[in-house]
């Protein structure tokens, strides 16, 4: 029997590489804003994560006896490295970035079968492992404006030598978490540097929002998961902030501080590890929003996107099971 090719014989010309490239492009405003406010650290993170990520991918592919020529072009490692670099603090030293990358590429991705088979978002898995293993290093954020120049940053990245005290400080989410008897407003009033930090984070979040909306318009993903996540996060903040607005961060704080927008548009939209159907994506996003609020407010960590995403990754197969859409003609 001859080996004929089944229809369709036309193809839309869509390629996975194209999607990956568009995601990378959409992250550029956020990356640049982050560089503008927080210095060269993120750039070094990114370079190192990409180089190491590609090397690790090549190594694992060799061990798994997969073709090598393919991985360089698919772009999935670069996206993972990019997300890791954006999420890690700018003052992360090389070994921290290495640990996160190693865990993301080797453990979270390839040990589960490689591209398309990983149940967890690789970048978030790498991030979370570092957050658990090296909590101190993971919370060193520079003050806006006060960052090191490229040479000093380079030195810090490899040797961890340099004057840190002058340039690091608590993040706004951290400060809100540890109010020490003050109200939120009092905290803002007492710490102008944290207000400045908050402004910087706001612009970074806005940049990610812009990139996210661009991807939405390009139909790289549907609106369901991001909107559900942002809406549920805001709703939680309004609900619990209503009683004691002095002690809880406002909805605006939650939406525009920390990694909220990065998470909403770049992390939870990762199709591999999220729920499949539209209804499922709504539940998936809403669950992440709620978990972010819960962990930020009552948990041990000031930010919670990574944990929330990983927890909902775990739930995704179950969500898929119960949100199977009705097929055509299958009336309830």
């Amino acid at each position: 029997m001859m080996n004929s090719i089944s229809s369709p014989h036309l193809h839309g010309g869509n390629r996975s590489q194209k999607i990956m490239l568009l995601v990378i492009a959409a992250a550029m405003p956020g990356l640049l804003t982050q560089l503008y406010w927080f210095g060269y650290g993120t750039l070094l993170n990114l370079m190192w994560a990409i180089v190491l990520g590609l090397l690790l991918e090549a190594g694992v592919l060799l061990l798994r006896q997969r073709p090598l020529g393919f991985f360089l072009t698919d772009g999935s490692v670069i996206v993972t490295a990019l997300l890791l670099a954006l999420a890690l603090p700018p003052m992360a030293p090389w070994w921290l970035v290495s640990t996160a990358t190693l865990f993301a590429v080797v453990f979270a991705k390839h040990l589960y079968g490689g591209l398309g088979n990983n149940p967890f978002n690789p970048a978030m898995a790498g991030y979370a492992i570092c957050l658990i293993a090296f909590p101190a290093s993971m919370t060193i954020w520079t003050s806006p404006y006060a960052y090191l120049d490229l040479a000093d940053q380079w030195l810090w990245f490899w040797t961890e030598q340099g004057q840190l005290d002058a340039i690091t400080q608590a993040t706004p989410l951290d400060a809100i978490k540890h109010l020490q008897g003050n109200t939120v407003d009092e905290m803002w009033a007492a710490n102008p540097d944290i207000v400045a930090y908050g402004d910087a984070m706001f612009w970074v979040n806005i940049a990610y929002l812009i990139g996210g909306i661009a991807m939405l318009l390009l139909k790289l993903f549907t609106w369901h998961a991001p909107v559900a996540m942002l809406a549920s996060l805001a709703a939680m903040a309004v609900l619990f902030g209503a009683g004691e607005p002095d002690l809880y961060a406002s909805a605006g704080n939650h939406l525009f501080l920390g990694a909220t927008m990065l998470g909403a548009f770049f992390i939870i939209t990762d199709p591999v590890s999220s729920a499949t159907s539209r209804q499922g994506k709504l539940i998936f996003g809403a669950g992440i929003g709620i978990l972010i609020y819960v962990i930020r407010t009552w948990g041990n960590y000031p930010d919670a996107v990574a944990f929330a995403v990983l927890l909902m990754n775990l739930a995704a197969p179950l969500i898929d099971q119960y949100t199977r859409p009705k097929a055509y003609g299958q009336q309830p």
Binding site: N14, P325, Y328
Partner: peptide
């Protein structure tokens, strides 16, 4: 990569 493009394109509302 489970991108879900196919689901958006499916006229029979399948997965």
């Amino acid at each position: 990569i489970r991108c879900g493009q196919c689901e958006l394109a499916c006229p029979a509302q399948l997965l």
